[in-house]
Write a protein that binds this DNA or RNA. Structure first.
Length: 424
RNA sequence: GGAAGGAUGGCCGAGCGGUUUAAGGCAGCAGACUUGAAAUCUGCCGUGGGGGCGACUCCACCGUGAGUUCGAAUCUCACUCCUUCCGCCA
């Protein structure tokens, strides 16, 4: 959520910045509601102040043993005026904050203009796409032929957009997760967590999934207090909800492997084959809590941490700086890492999204830092995938395939797979 | 699932209808003393929101939401969470 005062005091600049990401901020409506809200609050508070003063007088009179009956009648009548004024103020207050909660973050100055993926800027490329002397197959054909991925049975037991991993497929997935976690904890300095996969509405609000994106989430029942997490960002970031952290402990670097559950509403008919767009997938997530003055440097470092996985796996990738209009709701700046996948028509797959949310999430989730001088302020939150296996495993299958349909296991994963060099 | 107790500022903790303007302590910040530090002393020190150029002032907040009352941290009801005990259970 944006800061009310910042919005009020920089209206034209805020509207212009939001325009950069294609969000139409209604300046006129904001000014009207904001002014109305403040007028209503002032009126209600003046009435309350008068009422409080008289109530106090009643106490004094009673203590002095005098009659306060007449005054009590007067104050009783004021109660109705106060309630009416409070109701008006509350209505406008809700309207104002409801609008604010549904307004995305301001893009950082380094973010290019643009409304769609076409305006994203490639800022880095690593590795070389493999060259084949045969026609490379997509991962769903490779996986089925090897008997390691099974979509027919996944559909039977659950439905569309689920994957069953079998034998070396299951083991490869597990190896990948463990390799990612080991790298982030042992090499890149993150602390590992296991968290609940079901979280409450406050938690979903804290990271920005609610109230605007409820249709993307799975819920046990309509009346259940629990939502299934769409990413480990949600539980990890909310670990420190309503907390004040000491400046000395920052930055905090957290990681967790979790399954991720997404309704993928509105994506029907898109990427229906294979495991790239599923209702349930696996991801190792990176989350940072940082000081405001270092958060953009931490963002660069976090992105490098995510890239270190792809490089270790020897998977070619490119880093895209997202344009303002292609970023997620809460992001001020975002890099996408896209891995090259040899067997599909769309050859670059987003396998990580590394974002700096500045104080957008921390304002919602009320996460503060206590500075050395004792002052408290909102800290900055960041996160990125490190990485999503549903995009990395297909890339391994497709890029490392041989003419006979077998797969060369990346060297760094071999210790996790009993030393085997090839699947199939 | 049953029973009892509890939830107060960054932390601990008093307060159980009107000097609460939330005591006191810890931590923190500033200053004094000191060569420096420690100890000691003095002062400051919750969050959010209104109004004012400003000194300042007002409102709300004591787990959440309703209610009683002229007046609620304090009384009533519901809910959430925590602790202890019992039951069940991987």
């Amino acid at each position: 959520m944006l800061d009310l005062k910042t919005v009020r005091e920089n209206l034209p600049a805020v509207a212009a910045a939001l325009k950069k990401r294609g969000f139409d901020f209604d300046v006129e409506a904001f000014e009207r509601v904001d002014a109305g809200r403040r007028a209503a609050i002032t009126e209600a508070e003046q009435l309350k102040a008068a009422k409080n003063g008289l109530s106090k007088k009643i106490g004094d009179l009673k203590k002095a043993g005098e009659d306060a009956g007449e005054l009590m009648d007067r104050v009783r009548l004021m109660g109705e005026q106060v309630s009416a004024a409070e109701a008006r103020a509350a209505e406008l207050d809700e309207k104002l904050y409801d609008g604010l909660k549904r307004t995305p973050n301001l893009p950082h100055e380094s973010v290019p203009e643009g409304l769609g993926a076409e305006q994203n800027v490639e800022v880095k490329a690593w590795g070389r796409p493999p060259v084949f002397d045969f026609s490379p197959k997509p991962h769903w054909e490779l996986g089925e032929a090897l008997g390691i991925l099974d979509w027919v049975r996944a559909t039977k037991i659950s439905g569309a957009r689920f994957t069953v991993y079998r034998g070396m497929g299951a083991r490869l997935e597990r190896a990948l997760i463990q390799f990612m976690l080991d790298t982030q904890t042992q090499r890149n300095g993150y602390t590992e967590f296991w968290t609940p996969l079901l979280v409450n509405a406050e938690t979903m609000f804290g990271t920005g999934q609610l109230p605007k994106f409820e249709e993307d989430l799975f819920r046990l029942r309509g009346d259940s207090p629990y939502y299934l997490i769409p990413t480990a960002e949600v539980p990890l970031t909310n670990l420190h909800r309503d907390e004040v952290l000491d400046e000395a402990v920052l930055p905090l670097k957290y990681t967790a492997y979790t399954p991720c559950f997404r309704a993928e509403a509105g994506s029907y008919g898109k990427d229906t084959k294979g495991m790239v767009r599923q209702h349930q997938f696996n991801k190792v997530e990176l989350v940072k809590f940082a000081l405001p003055e270092t958060s953009f440097a931490e963002h660069e470092a976090l992105t490098l941490d995510a890239e270190s996985i792809l490089e270790a796996l020897e998977l070619p990738y490119r880093r895209m700086l997202l344009c303002a209009g292609d970023m997620g709701f809460g992001a001020a700046k975002c890099y996408d890492l896209e891995v090259f996948s040899a067997g599909q028509e769309k050859r670059w797959w987003e396998c990580s999204s590394c974002s700096n949310f500045t104080d957008f999430q921390s304002r919602r989730a009320n996460i503060k830092v206590k500075r050395r001088d004792g002052k408290k302020e909102l800290l900055h939150t960041l996160n990125g995938s490190g990485l999503a296996t549903s995009r990395v495993l297909p890339a391994i299958l497709e890029n490392n395939q041989l003419a006979d349909g077998s797969i060369v296991v990346p060297k760094v994963l071999r210790p996790y797979l009993g030393g085997i060099e090839k699947i199939g």
